[in-house]
Design a protein around this nucleic acid. Structure first.
Lengths: 257, 257
DNA sequence: AATGGTCATTGACAGCTGTCAATGGAATCG
DNA sequence: CGATTCCATTGACAGCTGTCAATGACCATT
């Protein structure tokens, strides 16, 4: 098991990881305290309100950051993928739980030792600050996306975002002559909780986008995006279908008559 | 004017400021580079996509952090009040604009000098990190609040949040024998952009809460909250009015017959 | 092959919000 | 004092989503 730590940790620092860019010395210190973990889909990494004993860095799979409301409803406020960090340093326990949306692997760094290292390694400190600033921006971008009231607009936004933010995860994409095939990496239920709606509306939104010709549903979890630009234009509340068809009628009159 | 800098800056570090808790030495350095600013409601502090030349700390008034969408709609992703910091350090320009929602005063720190100080003052660095972590949590809490589809639930949540997060701003509150009087510090339009809706729905939500007896509308911008706990219980999607009255009927039958 | 369970999908209906339009009130300006 | 402007409010109506219920597809187990 211990022999795995080295390669495991190197994966943690490859690609677009939040920890990429720290000095070799700092990496060595991180490697010394790294504890690889594996969890199956559905398991809880950090319970809501719990002060976690470690800081984590995702190696593979997807974690969901979520809150359970008093009435039992759940809301996902963010997804964590390869290279993303989670867990709070220094102070308060965050009021969100971290759960495995898929099978996941991650690095766990004991919180105390990580904080000590943070105090002595400005490069790590800087990397963490930038990472959190990015998280903040992403959270705010997501808020804007959620401001769309048509679920199909939110879904379109999510798919576009998947292409950009998750682009580094090759496994999810396949370029085909007729478009881009995407593997939607989370369940319909999670998608609903993420987009602030229900699975029924998710289903309707998928099929609405298919009717519009923007996508083709290959499987419940595989989608062919014919034109990413067209999909992106669905973001932002569309005119209603009725008005759209009205305009089409007017346009045809203008050309034919 | 220069004679004002001292007292102005001290205000910046008083109370629950993000910068409270830094060492005297660091404060002195900050004070040396502090430039007080004043703006009127509606003016823009940082334009969308612009790399700002300074980092700011709000002294009084309220700033709104917002994004203008392609179709002209605006969405406010956060409010900044006394003690809140804004402007990005080190890297990317944030894709949000910062505008004055009311008349405001703030401290401006030249970005380069602030970053240099940050590298040499771990206490400031730590304070900034914690501040941003809090911002992140607030952003996520706000996302959860926005997941309510009934606007009255969102509004109730906002009012409750006002009581907790803005509690330090005495000017906004007045304890009365019949409840807590709140001055809503932003316009109806901003409130609509903040809650992801329109002014008409804001109006309906206010009057719905008044009908329920939770609040009393004194002015368009002054509200008497009779019972904060009752208001808090409105957060989270309520049962519909119809079902509520149905339950009331059933309850009365159970007792009378 | 049969069964049970999970999940996606679809239909029907009601509720809430967005939109448009109109009204009313308050403040400002002449 | 009257006119204008801005804002809050209200009404009417349509559209979209939530909810509930039922169906269908797929998988695993027997």
């Amino acid at each position: 098991m211990t022999s795995e730590i080295g390669p495991t940790f190197r994966r943690c620092h490859s690609g677009s990881s939040a920890l990429s860019g720290v000095r070799a010395e700092t990496r060595a210190a991180l490697e010394a305290m790294c504890r690889p973990r594996r969890l199956c889909a559905g398991q809880t990494v950090i319970h809501e309100g719990e002060t976690s004993d470690y800081v984590g860095c995702v190696l593979s799979g997807i974690l969901r950051l979520q809150k359970t409301l008093a009435d039992g409803r759940q809301h996902i406020v963010g997804l964590l993928v390869e290279g993303d960090m989670f867990g709070r340093v220094f102070d308060a326990a965050s009021d969100f739980s971290v759960e495995a949306a898929t099978d996941v692997e991650f690095c766990a760094f004991p919180r105390g030792r990580f904080e000590t290292l943070l105090s002595h390694a400005p490069d790590l400190d800087r990397a963490l600050l930038l990472n959190i600033l990015n998280e903040l921006d992403r959270a705010r971008d997501w808020m804007v996306l959620l401001s769309n009231r048509k679920i199909s607009s939110r879904l379109a936004g999510f798919l576009v975002l998947l292409c950009s933010r998750f682009a580094s995860i090759d496994r999810l994409f396949e370029l085909r002559p007729d478009g881009l095939e995407i593997r939607v990496p989370i369940s319909r239920t999670d998608l609903a909780h993420l987009l602030g709606t229900r699975t029924e509306s998710i289903s309707r939104a998928f099929h609405w986008l298919e009717d519009k010709g923007d996508i083709e549903i290959l499987d419940p979890d595989r989608v062919l995006v014919r034109d990413v630009a067209a999909l992106a234009s669905r973001t932002g509340d569309d005119e209603t279908d009725e008005i759209a068809s009205l305009k089409a009628v007017l346009a045809s009159r203008r050309t034919s008559g």
